[in-house]
């Protein structure tokens, strides 16, 4: 039995410890260097939000919760920071119970860091349960009638940032930050019918399926998981800051190489064990 064949019987817990060690190194180092490459869809997302007129509002629709926080939170924070920096008003709409609290905390933290104010520069609409299609369709007709109040129960008509928002005409763009297939609802019921730009921020798992929509122009930009967030940070001038997204991008590099090595080793061992079983005339494994 050679080394590769012996490695086939390695305890899974050893692999778990190895992956933790591989990922921990870049996290401990916390590199400030952001990814060198910025994908076209990330740049398009940035440019779309840059072009939003000052008299219009941006809807940040967050479907995420703590489960995918590691991917969706850096995207949310990067978008919020960009909008606050350029003085574009926005509302956060949460479809997840726990995410409602997290997105509020994120926006509060960044807004106080940049000296912006709740109610004037941004508003949180709280948690919205229920069928997405009905709410999105209604929103195009009347923003005030569908949402009525913010997360604290204050009337949207009495809040400076949302006072004049009537319907789709006052919405400059929608940013959908999601770990599930909800973007189709925005495309079908809001962005296509009313011709409003749509930015998609999915978890990496969802990203491969979004390319047909980017090609057809139904999506105006995309931030692919935490890598997309790190690339977006580069565009908003944070390329030299020690952010979580940058550290995660390098940790992911290590993890991907580790996984590829595991697949190669696993297959080599499998091929060798198959060959030796054939020679010995025994039963084939696997």
């Amino acid at each position: 039995m050679n080394v590769l064949e012996k490695l086939q019987t390695i305890d899974r817990r050893v692999l778990y410890l190895l992956i933790a060690a591989v990922i921990a190194v870049p996290l401990l180092q916390r590199p400030s260097r952001h990814p060198r490459i910025v994908f076209a869809e990330v740049r398009n997302a940035y440019e779309t939000l840059q072009k939003v007129p000052k008299n219009k509002i941006v809807i940040i629709s967050c479907v995420w919760g703590p489960g995918t926080r590691a991917e969706n939170e850096p995207q949310t924070r990067a978008i919020i920071r960009h909008l606050l920096m350029q003085g574009t008003r926005f509302v956060i709409l949460s479809w997840d119970q726990l995410g409602s609290q997290l997105t509020y905390e994120d926006a509060s933290e960044i807004s106080s860091e940049l000296g912006k104010r709740y109610g004037t520069d941004w508003v949180h609409l709280g948690y919205n349960p229920g069928p997405m299609y009905a709410i999105i369709r209604g929103l195009g007709k009347s923003f005030q009638e569908v949402f009525k109040v913010d997360r604290f129960g204050k009337k949207l008509r009495s809040i400076p940032a949302t006072r004049n928002v009537r319907d789709y005409r006052d919405i400059g763009a929608v940013v959908e930050i999601t770990p599930s297939g909800t973007v189709a609802s925005w495309i079908a019921y809001f962005n296509q019918p009313f011709d409003v730009p749509l930015i998609f921020c999915p978890t990496a798992v969802m990203s491969a399926e979004a390319y047909p929509y980017l090609d057809s122009g139904q999506l105006d930009g995309m931030l692919n998981g935490v890598i997309g967030a790190a690339q977006y940070e580069t565009l908003i001038g944070m390329e030299n800051e020690r952010t979580y997204a940058a550290a995660a991008a390098w940790a992911l590099s290590c993890a991907h190489i580790f996984i590829i090595v595991l697949i190669v080793l696993g297959n080599l061992g499998y091929a060798l064990s198959k060959r030796s079983t054939r020679r010995g005339g025994g039963k084939t494994i696997g």
Binding site: I19, I23, A70, E71, V205, V226, L252, H256, I259
Partner: peptide, 10 residues
């Protein structure tokens, strides 16, 4: 793989 690894990285 990228998505799931990111969750552990978090």
């Amino acid at each position: 793989v990228m998505g799931r690894m990111t969750l552990f990285i978090g």
